[in-house]
Design a protein around this nucleic acid. Sequence first.
DNA 1: TCTGTTGTACGATGCAAGTCGTACAAGGAG
DNA 2: CTCCTTGTACGACTTGCATCGTACAACAGA
Lengths: 130, 130
Amino acid sequence: MGPTATDTATGTPPRFRTFTEDDRLPEPLPEPTRDEMRLEIVMAALSDPLRLFIVRKLLLEAERIDHPCGWFGLDRPKSSLTHHFRTLRDAGLIRQRQYGLTRGNQLRVEDLEARFPGLLRLIADWRPHA
Amino acid sequence: MGPTATDTATGTPPRFRTFTEDDRLPEPLPEPTRDEMRLEIVMAALSDPLRLFIVRKLLLEAERIDHPCGWFGLDRPKSSLTHHFRTLRDAGLIRQRQYGLTRGNQLRVEDLEARFPGLLRLIADWRPHA
DNA sequence: TCTGTTGTACGATGCAAGTCGTACAAGGAG
DNA sequence: CTCCTTGTACGACTTGCATCGTACAACAGA
């Protein structure tokens, strides 16, 4: 498994899984730094159920450092998905890396925990459709 | 002072100030119950800087159980303010009570802490304009 | 080289939200 | 009763966002 454990819901601070970086990874696409992240923008990005689903899936089900669009199993046109992933990256929620033809999507777990502590917990607890 | 203390930022769970209820208070205007609150809707309500300001001011500077519109010192037309306060109430963030001609606005601190633990902490830490 | 895959770029469309003016309602103070 | 205050209701305007079709680019594999 990975280097970290998951939240135990016992009152201990939640810890979400991260993956160690590989030096040979391509540079991330342009993204805001921690300090450039804006709460309003993050909130707006998370006000869409599809984007909430994407972030939550990355948070709870990621198996590698990042995953391409298709991994999420979203039944939408590709041009729609491009729009949503870009919105998430612009808000600072995800990091995107280009691997030849595919693009890897990674949740910025450590940056988000540092900048907005508790935010990921809210997303993990989200119940869609309820 | 009130019955509660404030967050100490030392790792202890944050506790925000609440006010004891008075039996003679008028009934709140229609609002979602705890379980009816939706994270997407709450996020959308908080994606507007003016509304974030309103909620944050209620969280950090409330002196009574609720406050009328004018207390916030917002330089906008009244019809705009009606819209924003209604958005906050529909999302479940605030409770509104009618006192004759004025309307009191109260943050639903306990409901929000129960339904979305950690959310108020994010709002308290928000820095506008930064 | 031809084909299939992954995803962007551009543009059109429809809808929701923010903004605000005006008119109006309820009630307190004089 | 009259005036002022607080806030709603309605409607118009504008902006922004979600959605998606089409065309295109980059690349892998047969």
